[in-house]
Design a protein around this nucleic acid. Structure first.
Lengths: 187, 187
DNA sequence: GGGTTTTCGCTACTAGAAGTATCGATACCG
DNA sequence: CGGTATCGATACTTCTAGTAGCGAAAACCC
């Protein structure tokens, strides 16, 4: 019964594996031009695929960018045996590093904006991007849901606001201050 | 030499005073439809003016929304004789209340997104919206610029992230937690 | 090899929004 | 009344999200 990942191979031409190229092209295009001017046409051209291929895989530009963010963030690099404070500090520094990577903050802010007034996209954003980290942190920190959500608001919100206002990632000194502040709050 | 606000009245038909109506229409339209679908056509119609009239006064949609935000926030309601902690707490609760008002968060997030990749708009946003509060707070709190900027990142970023993710303003309990956390950081 | 199914790239298209141009009408000043 | 600058209205250009349809290509099964 070991069917693996392909229960019974679907008939027809299989999809070519271009997700990695599309995600890379998406981030670099958003980084260069910003969310609004990073059109799907340009992303497709940069990835070397047709625009229709992109729309066959992701239903909208917002969904594409969200998937790109989910792929870019990946799982939290938590070590077994770390204390709550160590876990929190690791998570904050990981978030700061990721949001400082080219294109990430611009993509995040853009999908955020589109999500307001588009409940479907907000659902995707909350479910696919935030929830995985929330549940992992609830478990690792042994904190209730509303506390973890508060921490996420503070950390991600602060980092995004800095990137949006200045266009530059938060400097290490300020990331340190953020870590210290959250650790005091964690208790 | 007391020329007042009109040094020498300019010739020609004077501008009708429709800023208040336009700002109100902007916020309600953005509140109803979100930033992206709040088109200048719709805003103009809601305000009862022609679209061309709006473009005569503000050079772009982003500039209009920024001006609308500047108008909506207004000056910080600081009392003489308050302690640093009281000033900070007042400022945070004021920001939380304002960002919870209909349309403010959506407008903020939208202009934020447009500002990435549009250096001109980012300049407007930073100069006209953030700087006034930064200087007032630097003075009132007797804190260096980078500390005040850090506080602004944390407070505004947190409040906006919550609004963006949930569509609802931060509940009073969490605003209290935010105040407490910042006051500990303020020392 | 031949048939089936599905994806591919490509081109063309629709719908909608930002921003501009033009023009007759209008409001204030002297 | 004449000069000037704004007003509303309409039409327009340019750009973008997203869709439709086509022939070609890539897998699979017989």
């Amino acid at each position: 019964m070991a069917r693996g990942t392909t229960p019974t191979r679907a008939p027809g031409r299989p999809r070519s594996s271009v997700d990695a190229e599309v995600f890379a092209a998406t981030l670099s295009t958003v980084h260069e031009l910003g969310y609004t001017r990073a059109t799907v046409d340009r992303i497709a051209a940069a990835a070397g695929v047709a625009k229709t291929t992109i729309y066959r895989r992701w239903p909208s530009k917002g969904a594409l960018i969200t998937a790109c963010l989910v792929d870019a963030f990946g799982p939290l690099p938590l070590k077994e045996g770390d204390s709550r404070a160590e876990i929190m500090a690791t998570a904050i520094r990981y978030a700061a590093a990721k949001i400082g990577e080219p294109g990430i903050a611009a993509a995040f802010a853009g999908v955020f904006t589109d999500a307001i007034g588009d409940p479907g996209l907000r659902e995707i954003l909350s479910t696919q991007l935030q929830d995985p980290y929330r549940t992992v942190l609830q478990d690792a920190l042994d904190e209730p849901e509303h506390r973890v959500l508060f921490f996420i608001d503070v950390v991600i919100g602060t980092l995004l606001h800095r990137m949006g206002m200045t266009g530059e990632p938060m400097v290490p000194t300020d990331v340190d201050a953020l870590v210290e502040m959250i650790l005091r709050e964690l208790g």
